[in-house]
Simulated scan of single mutants.
Amino acid sequence: MFHKGTSIILLLVISAMGILDFPAETDRIIINIGPNLNPALPHRPNTEVLALEPMVGCRITGLRNPHVHIIHAAVGANSSLAQMNWYHVNAESSSFSHPTVRANWNNNPKTNRGKKIVPVIGMSDIFKAIPPELEVWYLKTDMQGFDFQAIVSGGEYIKRAHYILTETWFGNVQSYSNVQNDFCKHLFPYMISMNFIPIKGEDGYKTNDMLNRPGVKLINGKSIDEIKTLCNEQALLPERTGSLEGDVFWKRVDTTLEEPVWREAKENP
């Protein structure tokens, strides 16, 4: 259980715990998947944060916020054990998959530590553990290629979230092998079907051959129909390996809640 004034590190799979017990005054929840060393913060009273970080959660030692709960687990379609590949400094690019191109961040023996066995919590199990009377204000994912898979695996539970941030790819450029996470082909049509609309896009990491190509920020200022036209154009581009990544900010069409603080001060897109 969660108790007011107590910071708890969860080491168990949520599905085995049933409904979580939050302080009585709690009215909103933030779910942050893959925060690395910079988890989301509440930024308002009566808000609790569930931060799921499988690789370096134990290193978030400087955080002394009793309303941010670090859960040492990855997120996937189902609760299980799995092997995750440790990539980059502080494991910030770790993934269940492998990058499609070699670069210093994924090919450096000083920062890459091979495979680590991690517990995996099903996306739907996270939502099931949150009392139904609480609002899931913000779902934030940074899953190195697995954002779309996790969102889809959440099914109808995803509609409990008022705002969502997803990492994605653009322009038929595949960052990680054997996984679907393209904005136009995967996330955009699915999120529209789930009654979410994109608020904006921000370009993120690009490999050198992509530095001059605009990414998902191309959706900014466009209507849904204009984004559909843009995506039809992107579909004509040849598929290729590399990175043309970015983040997309989504809003549930019927929400009346204000936008969350999308990023913490130390974050990069």
Score class of each variant (00 low, 15 high):
residue 71 I to T: 05
residue 129 A to S: 15
residue 48 E to F: 14
residue 229 T to P: 00
residue 196 F to L: 13
residue 199 I to Y: 04
residue 249 F to K: 05
residue 222 K to W: 07
residue 200 K to N: 08
residue 23 P to M: 13
residue 127 F to R: 05
residue 14 I to T: 02
residue 118 V to K: 12
residue 145 G to Y: 05
residue 3 H to K: 11
residue 165 L to T: 14
residue 130 I to M: 11
residue 98 H to W: 01
residue 135 E to H: 00
residue 242 G to M: 05
residue 167 E to S: 07
residue 248 V to S: 03
residue 216 V to R: 01
residue 219 I to H: 01
residue 192 I to L: 15
residue 201 G to A: 05
residue 133 E to Q: 13
residue 26 T to L: 14
residue 229 T to S: 13
residue 21 D to C: 10
residue 53 E to L: 06
residue 265 A to T: 09
residue 142 D to C: 07
residue 74 A to L: 10
residue 115 K to S: 11
residue 102 R to K: 09
residue 203 D to Y: 02
residue 202 E to R: 08
residue 151 I to N: 09
residue 124 S to V: 05
residue 254 D to H: 04
residue 83 Q to H: 12
residue 64 R to E: 14
residue 87 Y to T: 01
residue 138 Y to A: 07
residue 227 I to H: 01
residue 245 E to R: 06
residue 46 N to G: 01
residue 259 E to L: 01
residue 66 P to R: 07
residue 46 N to E: 14
residue 185 K to T: 12
residue 4 K to Q: 15
residue 178 N to Y: 11
residue 146 F to Q: 14
residue 197 I to L: 10
residue 31 I to G: 13
residue 141 T to R: 13
residue 233 E to H: 08
residue 66 P to V: 00
residue 163 Y to Q: 14
residue 261 V to T: 15
residue 32 N to R: 11
residue 142 D to G: 06
residue 37 L to F: 04
residue 262 W to A: 10
residue 184 C to A: 12
residue 142 D to W: 09
residue 242 G to S: 03
residue 2 F to S: 02
residue 99 P to I: 01
residue 192 I to Y: 00
residue 125 D to H: 10
residue 261 V to F: 12
residue 150 A to M: 08
residue 175 S to L: 07
residue 134 L to I: 06
residue 175 S to I: 01
residue 27 D to S: 08
residue 141 T to L: 15
residue 72 H to T: 10
residue 219 I to K: 04
residue 131 P to T: 04
residue 77 A to H: 04
residue 97 S to A: 14
residue 67 H to Q: 14
residue 220 N to R: 01
residue 8 I to Q: 10
residue 76 G to I: 09
residue 136 V to Q: 08
residue 179 V to H: 05
residue 130 I to W: 08
residue 253 V to F: 09
residue 269 P to F: 00
residue 192 I to K: 09
residue 33 I to N: 12
residue 24 A to E: 15
residue 162 H to P: 01
residue 157 Y to P: 04
residue 97 S to P: 00
residue 144 Q to E: 15
residue 79 S to K: 08
residue 131 P to L: 03
residue 12 L to C: 06
residue 49 V to E: 08
residue 98 H to V: 14
residue 122 G to L: 03
residue 64 R to N: 15
residue 22 F to G: 02
residue 201 G to E: 08
residue 124 S to T: 08
residue 246 G to F: 03
residue 184 C to Y: 02
residue 49 V to M: 03
residue 133 E to W: 05
residue 155 G to V: 07
residue 119 P to Q: 12
residue 2 F to V: 09
residue 167 E to Y: 12
residue 102 R to E: 11
residue 19 I to R: 04
residue 122 G to H: 00
residue 169 W to C: 12
residue 254 D to C: 05
residue 106 N to D: 03
residue 63 L to T: 10
residue 57 G to R: 06
residue 197 I to Y: 03
residue 67 H to W: 08
residue 13 V to S: 13
residue 98 H to C: 01
residue 44 R to E: 15
residue 162 H to C: 14
residue 26 T to W: 06
residue 239 E to F: 10
residue 47 T to G: 14
residue 192 I to Q: 09
residue 114 G to R: 02
residue 164 I to P: 15
residue 153 S to Q: 01
residue 56 V to N: 08
residue 115 K to A: 15
residue 254 D to I: 02
residue 128 K to T: 03
residue 256 T to K: 13
residue 108 N to E: 02
residue 127 F to L: 05
residue 151 I to W: 10
residue 129 A to H: 02
residue 14 I to P: 00
residue 79 S to Y: 02
residue 122 G to F: 00
residue 49 V to H: 06
residue 35 P to F: 09
residue 232 N to E: 15
residue 226 E to Y: 05
residue 139 L to T: 11
residue 209 D to M: 03
